[in-house]
Computed example of a mutant assay.
Amino acid sequence: MKNNSNHHFLFKNLKEKRMSFERVFEHIKEFMRSEPSGKYRLIIGTDSQVHPRQTTFITGVVILNEGKGVWACIRKVVVPRKMEHLHERISYELSLSEEIVSLFTEEKKNQLIDIVLPHVYDGASFTMEGHIDIGAGKRNKTREFVNEMVTRMESIGVEPKIKPNAFVASCYANRFTK
């Protein structure tokens, strides 16, 4: 019997409204197989927006073939209260990203690596990044959380990126939180 522990993870994009994680993973593999010699970055990042009665979290899952295109989807989570404490919100954003990263088991990551492996001498590559919607700039309210959040991403084997390089969290996911 197939393990359905991922059934509560529903993703969507402009073409499909209710995708399971398995379906998302199939899309990623299809996208990579269409050009196995690509330079692929699998990027997961979450952003949030506080509304009057709730806080909306959007996690973006993006497979990017540098300079050649992208396939992406989102997962939406709504917390039925205003999360006004910045550290709590940033930490929860990261937890949601960590949850999605954990679905990419070693077996799944190896399946993706196996697509590009025969083409590494042609420049093919595969990396996994976690985009965190925080910045280290002096005027950035989130700068005090950078070390903690970056360490959390690194500890799960994902290359952390913060603003201005965290575009999946700060741009893509952000568009859907409004």
Rank of each mutant, 00 (worst) to 15 (best):
V79W: 02
I90K: 15
F31L: 10
S48C: 09
L94C: 12
K138F: 12
Y121R: 05
N140T: 13
A124E: 11
E84R: 08
V77K: 12
T105S: 14
K161I: 01
T151Q: 05
P80I: 02
M153H: 00
E26A: 09
V62F: 04
N165Y: 13
K39N: 01
E144K: 13
V62P: 05
R33A: 15
S97R: 05
C73A: 14
F57P: 00
K82L: 00
E26I: 08
R33K: 15
K76M: 08
S155M: 06
F167I: 03
V70Q: 14
I115T: 07
N65R: 14
E30D: 13
S125N: 08
Y92V: 01
N3Y: 15
G135S: 15
K178S: 11
P160F: 12
I58F: 04
T56C: 01
A136D: 07
Q111I: 03
P36M: 07
S34N: 15
R41M: 06
F21L: 12
N13D: 13
D47P: 01
S97M: 03
H85C: 03
K15R: 10
D133Q: 10
G45S: 06
R81G: 01
N110R: 11
A72Q: 13
E16V: 09
R18G: 04
A72G: 05
T56V: 13
V168M: 05
K15M: 12
A72E: 14
M83Q: 08
S91N: 14
T142W: 10
I132C: 04
L103K: 08
I74A: 00
V120W: 05
G69C: 09
E22L: 09
D122I: 00
L96H: 08
